[in-house]
Design a protein around this nucleic acid. Sequence first.
DNA 1: ATAGCATGACGTATTTTTGCGTCAGAATTT
DNA 2: AAATTCTGACGCAAAAATACGTCATGCTAT
Lengths: 112, 112
Amino acid sequence: MSQAKNNLFDDHLQDLALIFKALGHPARLQILKFLGTRNTCYSGDISEIIPLGRTTVNQHLTELKKAGLIKGTTRGAKTNYCLNPEGIQKLTNCGVSFCNELQLDACETKVC
Amino acid sequence: MSQAKNNLFDDHLQDLALIFKALGHPARLQILKFLGTRNTCYSGDISEIIPLGRTTVNQHLTELKKAGLIKGTTRGAKTNYCLNPEGIQKLTNCGVSFCNELQLDACETKVC
DNA sequence: ATAGCATGACGTATTTTTGCGTCAGAATTT
DNA sequence: AAATTCTGACGCAAAAATACGTCATGCTAT
């Protein structure tokens, strides 16, 4: 992917950061959203709805795959992509619990 | 920040991507987590717990500020930082609803 | 007032990311 | 079999992110 896991930061934080980083581009968000409405679709269908070149879209697909958020299966000449339930689950769980840990209520009453 | 808002993608997606991007680095996650336990603290306190140079930590603070996730107030020689409730709220709301839109249940039963 | 910190601004080098064109291989269609 | 289509791999350029060092400023003590 990008930055290799180093030992400066907590492993859990690094994992989480990688997931969030994968969500840090509108094209990738749009891809995920699209896949959410489709269950499955071809790589070509995706590059059609994203306002970027096919090669670039492919790169974004690869990144989402590396982040574990989608799955791709080559079937004949075409490749099927769909959301990866485990990855989405992890995103939801970890993301939500991270937000909760920020103890928003406590902060809400304070000013800095 | 980073990429200026262009008109290739939906505004809402771009906003969301910017927030997620801000979360895409372990140092920034650690900063947020730390601030969640403190209500408020000095900039110096933060750079002490992050395994990076002070200047770099400052940069990360600036990015978090631009993303609206934290607030900074200069008080005398020192600067106070704390979570920005509105930003965290937005993250929580938008993030969660984005995940929900992925219709995980529907996907869970399919394979690609 | 003066010496000592804390902080943000600025400049810079290195690494990543982003975006795209081209190519080669595999499968489909004709 | 030949032509076409779909894909991922590879290479490349431009832009952005990352990480620091240094500096100037502005408080805070002494």
